[in-house]
Design a protein around this nucleic acid. Structure first.
Ligand SMILES: NC(=O)c1ccc[n+]([C@@H]2O[C@H](COP(=O)([O-])OP(=O)(O)OC[C@H]3O[C@@H](n4cnc5c(N)ncnc54)[C@H](O)[C@@H]3O)[C@@H](O)[C@H]2O)c1
Ligand SMILES: NC(=O)c1ccc[n+]([C@@H]2O[C@H](COP(=O)([O-])OP(=O)(O)OC[C@H]3O[C@@H](n4cnc5c(N)ncnc54)[C@H](O)[C@@H]3O)[C@@H](O)[C@H]2O)c1
Lengths: 235, 235
DNA sequence: CCCACTTTGTGCACCGGTTCACAAAGGGAC
DNA sequence: GTCCCTTTGTGAACCGGTGCACAAAGTGGG
């Protein structure tokens, strides 16, 4: 353990790797619960549903944390990945928009489990403001900036209708937040340095439908070449 | 319009393109509502938040549906993309697991809007079975196979706890479903030919946390080289 | 009919990421 | 200590996707 951080880990872990680390972490936690002390790249790769070479390359970006001929120490790797992802500190999250989805998110347990804490719920609807959900009181969105400052919110979840999302994003960014998880079906324009992640159910379904159509087309011999282009369309 | 489908559109639209088509479609629908008849790749690209060359290349995979010097006909492009994505037919979707999240999904309007119809709700909890949600009655998951067959379900949304997800996936696949949208935080193992898409809130937050940590590290001069490796950890 | 202008469609160079395949490293048996 | 076995870490080829830059195609004005 003399001088870890060989040449890797210097700067920049590939984005694709970052996106898989949580997967590895989840698999490792399962293994730790089952009492496993070490795990090979092969076994961990299977558990995480990836290729083992990819897994090794991913881990090599964090440093050289395996033992050849043996594998990786489960607890140690959990610690290293958690640290890399920033899960050793806890993050205050605010949920803006407490409708169907916002409520589900607020009540979601798995949320809190790993470093994330729902610190505030905000809504514009006077019917909703004041409600008690998951131990929190819904505050008025007029208080947005004050709440972000007071509770040291660093991640905002947007669960409002699309029409309100851009304006709310502008406000939370102006208030200093640079990480947003957006559930509204709109493309948010944000300045350099702000990270947006988008969850879009409708897009996921459409992608599934595309492949589903392909599959059934293949069954039935492809789309009839004839109606490639129905003239009736109102151009 | 004599003989469209030059050499493109033959087989296989790139996966990355498929994932963006719903974005273009959404932008186009907005434009159609605002009465725009044609749109340039530049304008549409801005609305969808992508590079215009990428947009043109994406659309070229569907065929050559633009007019040089003019742009794309909005209505016509909506029709072509919809057809390509399989949104001209409607898809029966079953939601399995009617808890916090399942309810939010069932009540979600934007769902139905474009070709998707929630055709069944299923749960294992006798407290929940029989509830009326969004005009449907929650059925018992024992009926899963029968419901899938009876309602011609082709897409299943899994919104159960992780522990139940793999087993349920196996059952819906055995019942002939080949498209699954999974909200449970587990890696599902599925046979060739089955499409899984995963929505994982926890992973999204962890990715945000990673970048957030990087950003704040940069502010404060990076993580102190010293505590790279606290000896105290219980290895 | 011709010219100037706009905008598409795409060839090509580039880039990040994936995968193979193997040398190097470590462990354990004797 | 030596040998054999296991498994890591990574060089290098490959692959899909991105974006620049431009020729080709079409429009509209005169
Ligand atoms: N429910 C789902 O399953 C689902 C799935 C995918 C995407 N979405 C998207 O998530 C978002 C929320 O969906 P939902 O079903 O919870 O909608 P909803 O209508 O139930 O809830 C929206 C909430 O946002 C609040 N709101 C509106 N404007 C606001 C503002 N300016 N500031 C603060 N709060 C405001 C409303 O008062 C309401 O409580 C929508 O954009 C929807 O398209 C929802
Ligand atoms: N709620 C959220 O915001 C959220 C966010 C991200 C991920 N998730 C994930 O989505 C899933 C559902 O979350 P939730 O908050 O709705 O949980 P929940 O506990 O509220 O609901 C789960 C539902 O599934 C049902 N169920 C359990 N076993 C079943 C089975 N074998 N067959 C059919 N139904 C069964 C339960 O009766 C319950 O109604 C979980 O895996 C969770 O980790 C939830």
């Amino acid at each position: 353990m003399i001088r870890r951080l060989s040449q890797a880990r210097e700067r920049g872990i590939p984005e694709a790797t970052v996106a898989r680390l949580p997967l590895y972490l989840r698999a490792l936690n399962g293994m730790a619960e089952r009492g496993l002390a070490t795990v090979s790249s092969e076994d961990l790769a299977v558990a995480a549903g990836v290729n083992s070479a990819k897994l090794r390359k991913d881990l090599s970006h964090l440093g050289s944390y395996g033992t050849r001929g043996v594998g990786y120490d489960v607890e140690y790797l959990i610690y290293q990945i958690s640290r890399e992802l920033g899960l050793t500190q806890d993050w205050a999250v605010a949920i803006v928009g407490v409708g169907n989805l916002g409520r589900a998110l607020a009540n979601y347990g798995g949320f809190v489990s790993r470093g994330f804490r729902v610190a505030a719920l905000l809504d514009a609807d006077p019917e909703v403001v004041g409600d008690h959900i998951a131990g929190l009181t819904v505050e008025h969105v007029d208080e947005l900036e004050a709440v972000i400052r007071r509770r040291a919110v660093s991640i905002v979840v947007l669960a409002t209708p699309g029409a309100a999302a851009q304006q709310l994003a502008d406000r939370v960014i102006a208030a200093g937040v640079t990480s947003i998880l957006n559930f509204a079906p709109v493309v948010l324009a944000v300045p350099e340095g702000v990270d947006i992640r988008k969850v879009d159910l409708s897009i996921e379904l459409q992608i599934l439908a595309f492949h589903e159509q392909r599959k059934t087309d293949r069954m039935t011999g492809g789309p009839a070449m004839a109606e490639e282009w129905p003239e009736a369309v109102d151009l």
